[in-house]
Simulated assay, not measured.
Amino acid sequence: MSDRRVLGDFLRACRGRVSPSQVGLPVGAGRRQTPGLRREEVAALAGVSVDYYIRLEQGRDTNPSLAVLDALAAALRLTEDERGHLLDLARAVADRRPGGRQPVAARPGLLTLLESVRPTPGFVLDQVSNLLAANPEGLRLLWGIAAWEPQRRNLIRYVFTHPAARSVFEDWAGMARDCVAHLRTVQGRDPGSPELAALTGELCAASAEFAQLWAHYEVRTKRGARRMFAHPAVGRVELTSEILTAPDGQRFVAFQAAPGPDRDALALLGLVGDDVPEHGHGAEYEQR
């Protein structure tokens, strides 16, 4: 995809999700051919000319002012995360920033932190969620990912293509949506990222569900969340993730447990062997 079109793609996706009634416009008689708002309706709501708005969607104007972006965000009823994404896209496209290479090694301080938090499962991820490092509990929490070659280990690839993921994450659909929404925020900061283009191209081809979510264009910043795991080695456990982001974009992610059985399960996770599932039939996933 051309960097000049990413801003327009986002605007089109957003106006397609807003109904006239949501912004106080009459639906009118007959069937609307355009889902959501028409271009002229968005332009009127934002106080810009229809021609100017069309140029934005077509990538022929890539330097809108902050006032115009704020007006568009209000017209399209964007969330704070979506508004931030709109601003990021506009800056990135206007600056023509070249896609930068992702760091290939975890920061030394984050590696130390991985050991310090044990038996809490911990990971170091880059912006597109490549697994740069993990403690033993972290690798075992993502059951089966250790069987992949290190360069293939990516949290989002795991969610959409590993057969164990749909069992490990009880709310797999929610996890999948969060992963794709995160990738859209990455695109906003660096539309030309070759790592992002390679990953999204691969997953669109490998997973119809990923392709559908990517086309839906949901934007949401990754934040801590409660997740329920149905783990083949230690059973059912509820964990809360915490995310720390370093200046270079590397993320430290830890899944913590409240005192009680869930915390005991994490201690067990650090002790069980990778090939000795104690609940269910997790061993089969290690062979895939």
Rank of each mutant, 00 (worst) to 15 (best):
V180W: 04
P194W: 09
C179I: 06
F210T: 04
T185R: 12
G192Y: 04
H162D: 13
W148E: 12
E170W: 14
S167Q: 11
L155Q: 14
R153D: 08
T185H: 07
R184W: 10
D190Y: 06
W172F: 05
V186A: 06
L199Y: 07
I145L: 10
D171V: 13
E195I: 10
I145Y: 02
V186K: 08
C179V: 07
F169K: 03
T161D: 14
L183E: 01
D190L: 01
S207K: 05
A165L: 09
P191S: 01
G144Y: 01
R152E: 15
F169W: 11
Q187E: 14
W172T: 03
M175R: 12
G201F: 00
E149W: 00
L142P: 03
P194M: 12
L155R: 15
I156S: 13
T161E: 15
W143I: 02
G174F: 08
S167P: 00
R184Q: 12
R184D: 00
L155M: 14
W148T: 06
A173K: 11
S207Y: 04
R153S: 07
G174H: 10
C179T: 07
L196H: 08
A164W: 02
V180F: 02
A181F: 03
E170F: 14
P191H: 02
V180G: 02
G192E: 07
T161L: 12
R177A: 14
V180E: 02
H162G: 10
A165G: 09
R157E: 04
A208H: 10
I145R: 05
V159C: 09
A176K: 06
W172H: 13
H182M: 06
Y158V: 13
V159E: 11
L183I: 09
Y158Q: 14
R177T: 13
D171K: 14
Y158I: 13
A176M: 04
I156C: 11
D190R: 02
L199E: 05
P191M: 00
C179F: 08
R152T: 10
F210W: 07
G188I: 07
F160Q: 11
P150M: 04
G201R: 08
A181C: 07
L155P: 05
